[in-house]
């Protein structure tokens, strides 16, 4: 999570207008959805990689990111390719395999274009985009709050896990469970103080106020 977030605000495109980046990445996404074909996949993946590379994001990170959905896609398309015909006899034909392949291609290509967008666009810009798209303001406010709180909770999580590790705790599920409970209770304890901060600053309405650079227009 932190890796993606840091990559986004350290990328060369971090200050570029989010609408311009969306105008490049989202058409690629829709293209791969509509044109479900290996050739389209190839084209989109190459384009997306170039965009990511141009944006100064490590290609290794990008490839590593793409490998994860690749595994999920394979697991997901198996039931499409094969179907049960009677008890314990598996059946597949040309059409169903064809469908599995196109689905896998479409999924991979659209993941590639979505990740290209995520890796070059800090989340704050996505919030701004939502505002431009006239999404309801309450929704945007909550999203902005959740974004900030996620990182605070994540910091806490890292600290609790570290504290347990240092005292010979064994890494694993129990440690995570203990951390979850502690984060929850300690956050509840802080609620009062946070509400005070909100009162002091006059409310919790999110008002977007950032300015961006452009790919083509020179800065004034």
């Amino acid at each position: 999570m932190n890796v993606l977030n840091r990559a986004a605000y350290n990328s060369r495109f971090a200050r570029i207008h989010p609408a311009e980046k969306a105008a490049i990445c989202l058409p690629m996404l829709f293209l791969s959805l509509i044109w479900r074909d290996p050739a389209a996949t190839f084209f989109v993946v190459i384009m997306a990689s170039m965009f990511v590379f141009w944006g100064g994001v490590s290609l290794i990170l990008y490839i590593r990111l793409l490998l994860a959905p690749a595994a999920f896609i394979l697991a997901g398309v198996l039931p499409i390719a094969f179907s049960f015909e009677g008890w314990l006899s598996i059946y597949a034909n040309k059409e169903s395999i064809q469908e599995a392949v196109t689905t896998a291609c479409a999924a991979f290509a659209s993941a590639a274009s979505l990740y290209a967008f995520i890796l070059t666009t800090p989340f704050t810009q996505i919030i701004w985009l939502m505002n431009v798209c006239k999404l309801p303001s309450l929704f945007i406010e909550i999203v902005a709050l959740v974004y900030r709180f996620i990182f605070q909770l994540w910091e806490k999580k890292s600290e609790v896990i570290m504290a347990q590790t240092l005292r010979s705790g064994r890494p694993g599920i129990q440690m995570a469970a203990r951390a979850a409970v502690h984060i929850f209770t300690s956050t509840l304890m802080e609620m009062n103080e946070r509400q005070h901060a909100v009162d002091l600053r006059g409310g919790l309405d999110y008002i977007p106020s950032s300015e961006w650079q452009s790919f083509w227009r020179k800065k004034k």
Partner: peptide, 22 residues
């Protein structure tokens, strides 16, 4: 509003807690 924000963040962190991968 604050409570809702935290509920969302907590649900997210919980869902991401288990496996420390990219």
């Amino acid at each position: 509003k604050l409570m809702i924000g935290f509920a969302g963040a907590f649900a997210f962190v919980l869902s991401a807690l288990k496996i420390p991968s990219v």
